[in-house]
Simulated scan of single mutants.
Amino acid sequence: MASPYLCPNCKTNRMRFNIIEQLPRSVRLDPQTGEVVAELAADQLDPFHQPYQGETYRVQCGVCGVIEREESFIKMAQHMQNQR
């Protein structure tokens, strides 16, 4: 987060953002009720249970509300900087 951001949607916001931390939980559910039967650590996953591979966090524009990968906000800021 040491890079400038620019919202790729509204293209005006450079200051107001929400950082959304994604904290995945690996769980096993009861197929009938949907209740959590077990919460699993990364080393407890069976071969059919893929570990989470997404981003650690995402960014939301504090003006228009769009949620994207951090890279989208950084690339838009770099693109607009190169336009000048």
Score class of each variant (00 low, 15 high):
N18V: 02
I20Q: 02
P47K: 15
V37G: 12
C61H: 12
E68N: 11
P51G: 13
C61V: 05
F17D: 01
C64K: 05
Q44K: 13
I19P: 01
P47C: 09
P8M: 02
N18M: 05
F48I: 13
E55L: 07
G54S: 12
M1N: 07
P24N: 09
F73E: 00
L45H: 13
R14S: 03
H79V: 05
A77K: 01
E70G: 08
H49V: 11
E35R: 14
C61W: 05
C61S: 07
M15K: 09
A2F: 01
R14G: 03
Q78S: 04
M15G: 01
Q78M: 09
I67Q: 08
K75Q: 12
L29P: 03
M15L: 03
C10R: 02
E68C: 12
E71R: 05
Y52V: 15
D30P: 14
A2R: 07
N18S: 04
Q44F: 02
C7I: 02
Q22F: 08
T56M: 14
V27C: 01
Y52W: 08
P4G: 07
C61I: 05
F48E: 15
V27I: 11
F17N: 05
R25H: 14
S72E: 01
Y5N: 00
P51V: 02
Y5L: 11
P8T: 06
F17L: 05
T12G: 13
H49F: 12
A38D: 11
R28E: 15
R25N: 09
N13Y: 01
E39L: 01
P24H: 00
P47M: 11
H49N: 15
S72L: 00
M76L: 08
E55V: 14
V63S: 13
R28V: 11
N9E: 06
V27A: 03
S26A: 11
E68T: 10
E71D: 06
M80E: 08
M76E: 12
N9T: 03
F73H: 02
V27T: 03
A41N: 01
F73N: 06
P24G: 06
C61G: 10
R58Q: 11
Q60W: 03
F48S: 15
S72Q: 07
Q50E: 15
V36F: 05
H79L: 12
N18Q: 04
